[in-house]
Design a protein around this nucleic acid. Structure first.
Lengths: 221, 221
DNA sequence: TCTTGGAAAAATATCGGAAATTTTGAGCGC
DNA sequence: GCGCTCAAAATTTCCGATATTTTTCCAAGA
């Protein structure tokens, strides 16, 4: 729980990434260095360093000599990202469910419990804790695949997951009851060590989320 | 063919990445900023920016407050990367072979031809053009999956491919005749639009490369 | 009116140095 | 000999200033 003392660079990196994912920095918008300088209280060099990192992860575009932009959104991009997430996460969950040990099960139970609590709160109409819900959702999906034995796979997945999350945050709506059921189903199949079943349930969960988000994205604009 | 005028940052980025992939910067070695400054003729800020990018791609490690290191190598890491490459590239090639149009076929034929020439030169004992061979190998594999219709997938793949390549360069040896045959087989199955066949041939090609590289890696230590 | 040229303004890219942190190593007590 | 402390050295982190490039805008000519 204790917060490590952060360097300015890391702190600014986390803030900007968060602001992009939560839509506080609008997709496609121009990130003027001087503007960011006052907003995030860091020097130009530090900001450039941060934006370069985000650019290589794909949250920012950095055309040579003409600054930085928040990566735009589009239905095609969302579809690609969801496909990629399915490819990576479904592969990882198969490995993980097959290989996970007792500690993995314990962490998974804990993560699901916290997500469940948070989703019930959202269901009851209290959307104030969107950021907390986002964290629990992430931690649940991470717990599922944690035992896959590939750091490289987990690293790539986490970036794709965050990109997917930006779209979810953008449409602002919560799928409710349906998502709760899907999470529970994946959870139970994973504990039962049903490799193929878990995989199928996860794929369905992501596809449903994609369709939901695509509809809202088209609806708003 | 014309070379764009590059910014210092981009130029240094390409040089350092190349030096890591080709082993001129040793795995695990400490990248002292002042040392790099004279070697690559750039300021500290520019170098930090570059190293941050490479760190987020995974070629460099950047523990907080204690500098930068070339990412170490290990048999486990190589195995993970090969698995990831199979996951991504085999998925992409299925899409690509199914969807590719006439232009795709044309580019593929050209890429295979150039790779074939380069490999024959390597076979005849002339290893002077290792860097050119590397480029042709990359361009061939890229041409194969180019029509997959997912920029996101291609972007992730290119990083994983480069990481795999570093291990190949590290062991220095060329698989020769065998690799030539495998490339030709993948090429012909792709042109024949045999989706599953191409996929299987590609997977076999990567697995053979992995085993070859793993043996050499263990051998040299 | 439309296009073109080209300064003025704005923004980015790069650098060198100051501040903060980690590493080194010599001296001291046990 | 071994570990500990603390200051010196090395290194990383961060910022302000300069150089370069792009963008804006206005006027002149077709």
């Amino acid at each position: 729980m204790s917060k490590q003392i952060l360097t300015v660079g890391t702190s600014v990196y986390q803030q900007i990434k968060r602001d992009i994912i939560f839509g506080d920095l609008e997709p496609g918008s121009n990130l003027k260095l001087n503007g960011l300088k006052s907003r995030y209280a860091a020097s130009l060099s530090t900001l450039r360093e941060t934006l370069s990192r985000l650019a290589s992860e794909g949250f920012v575009e950095a055309p040579e000599q003409r600054g930085f932009f928040v990566t735009p959104v589009s239905a095609e991009d969302l579809t690609e990202i969801a496909d990629l997430r399915i490819l990576l996460e479904c592969h990882a969950i198969e490995q993980s469910v097959a290989l996970g040990d007792v500690d993995w099960e314990g962490d998974l139970v804990a993560a699901h419990h916290k997500l469940d609590l948070s989703e019930r709160q959202m269901l009851s109409g209290d959307h104030s804790e969107k950021e907390a819900w986002k964290r629990y959702d992430w931690e649940f999906h991470l717990a599922l695949i944690q035992a896959c034995r590939s750091r490289n796979l987990l690293d790539v997945h986490s970036i794709v997951f965050d990109k997917y999350l930006r779209y979810q945050m953008l449409v602002l709506t919560y799928r409710g009851e349906e998502a709760v059921r899907e999470h529970r189903k994946v959870f139970e199949l994973a504990l039962a060590r049903d490799v193929k079943g878990t995989r199928a349930a996860l794929e369905e969960h992501i596809m449903n989320g994609l369709n939901h988000t695509l509809r809202r994205l088209a609806g708003s604009g």
